[in-house]
Amino acid sequence: MSYFAGIDIGGTNVEIGILNEAGDILGKKSIKTNSKNGAEDTFQRIWNTTKELAEELKISEDEIEAIGLGIPGPVVNNSVVKIAANFSWNNDFPAKDLMEKISGKLVKVGNDVKLIALGESLFGAGRGYKNSITVPIGTGIAAGIIVNGMILEGADGAAGEFGHVVVNKNGYKCGCGLTGCLETYCSATGIVREGKKRLEENQDNELYRKINGNIDSLEAKDIFDLAKSGDKFSMEIVDFFCEYMAEGIGMLLNIINPEIIIFSGGVAKARGILLEGVKKYLPKYALGMTMENLKFAFGELDEEAGIKGAAALVINKK
């Protein structure tokens, strides 16, 4: 029996799991990333924790066939992290080489969003589809694109960064350095920004009362919850969000022509109201033929998406 380690490295925490060939998580642990202590320290602690987990599961170290690492930032050749923005490490960070040196195992590294998409393709909502796009919506937004069963990486690992397509050249400055990126509108951060802007202009509404007038405490969930209940003020904010989202999805449809779009991440928990809004505006931005047989779904892997996606990188034999 072969086993695989799936490791989801975030700026704050690292989620570690051991999976079987079917993609079932047999056990998992979480540790602090503490990247300020250096990459070697972090990776050594990851491997030590993986070995501890294997021992608890009565799995020998030799039975761990390979390690999949998910990490934020563009990744080149399943090896080098071009921009390690969330960590106290240098860019062009050799993640694969370092983990292989420490573990003695085959290692593949992938961008966290792309690996969520691969995980959904193999084990979740994308099963049975050769061409799928997974769109996690959280603090930011990106697209994990699967074409003919394979992750679309791009020459420098930047494929799928549709959150940084400029949709308003006179819009907000984005953290990437561009102005008016889709992400500044279609993310938890974006909808909260729009909500705060409107609340500063109008306090006579249910949303203002829900947050007791504390505009700084506003969260995306507040807006979506009230919109679902029929609150006109909140519905208009969601509508604004959904039109920009439809513009972004329309670009993906026209370029990739997928069979299914899978929404995941925190904002996707809004479900129906998000999907209805996107579908309402999508005909303005997508070719009719790309929508004829298009399916929509919501991610099935939830909090296990990072671990399963990372493991999918080494379990996937395609």
Rank of each mutant, 00 (worst) to 15 (best):
A5C: 14
I9N: 05
I9V: 15
T12G: 02
T12D: 04
N13K: 15
V14M: 09
I18K: 04
I25F: 10
I25D: 13
K29D: 07
S30Y: 01
K32A: 12
N37F: 13
G38A: 10
A39L: 08
E40T: 06
E40I: 11
F43D: 09
Q44A: 05
T50M: 03
T50A: 15
A54V: 05
E55H: 13
E56A: 05
K58G: 05
E61V: 01
E61N: 10
I64M: 00
I67A: 00
G70I: 09
I71F: 02
I71E: 02
N78Q: 14
S79K: 15
V80W: 00
V81E: 02
F87I: 08
W89T: 10
P94Y: 06
D97L: 13
K101N: 14
K105G: 03
V107P: 01
N111Y: 07
D112C: 07
V113K: 03
V113T: 09
K114M: 07
L115P: 01
L118E: 03
S121P: 00
G128R: 11
N131M: 10
I137V: 14
A142F: 13
A142Q: 05
A143Q: 05
I146Q: 03
I146R: 02
V147Y: 14
N148Q: 13
A159Q: 10
G163C: 11
V166E: 05
K169C: 14
K169S: 14
G171D: 07
Y172F: 12
C174D: 06
T184C: 06
C186H: 00
S187V: 03
T189W: 13
I191C: 07
K197C: 05
R198H: 00
L199E: 02
Q203D: 14
D204C: 02
N205W: 02
L207C: 11
G213P: 12
D216C: 10
S217V: 06
S217P: 02
D222S: 00
A227W: 03
S229I: 03
G230V: 10
S234G: 05
F241C: 05
C242V: 10
M245I: 00
A246Q: 06
G250D: 02
G250E: 03
I255Y: 12
I256H: 04
N257L: 06
I260W: 00
I261G: 04
I261P: 04
F263M: 08
G265R: 04
G265S: 09
G266V: 08
G266Y: 05
G266E: 01
V267Y: 01
K269N: 15
A270V: 09
G277Q: 11
K280P: 02
Y285P: 04
A286D: 07
M291F: 08
L294A: 03
F296N: 04
F296D: 04
A297D: 15
F298T: 04
E300H: 03
D302G: 00
D302M: 11
E303L: 00
E304T: 15
G309W: 08
G309Q: 08
A311I: 07
A312W: 06
V314M: 12
N316C: 09
N316M: 06
K318V: 15
K318G: 14
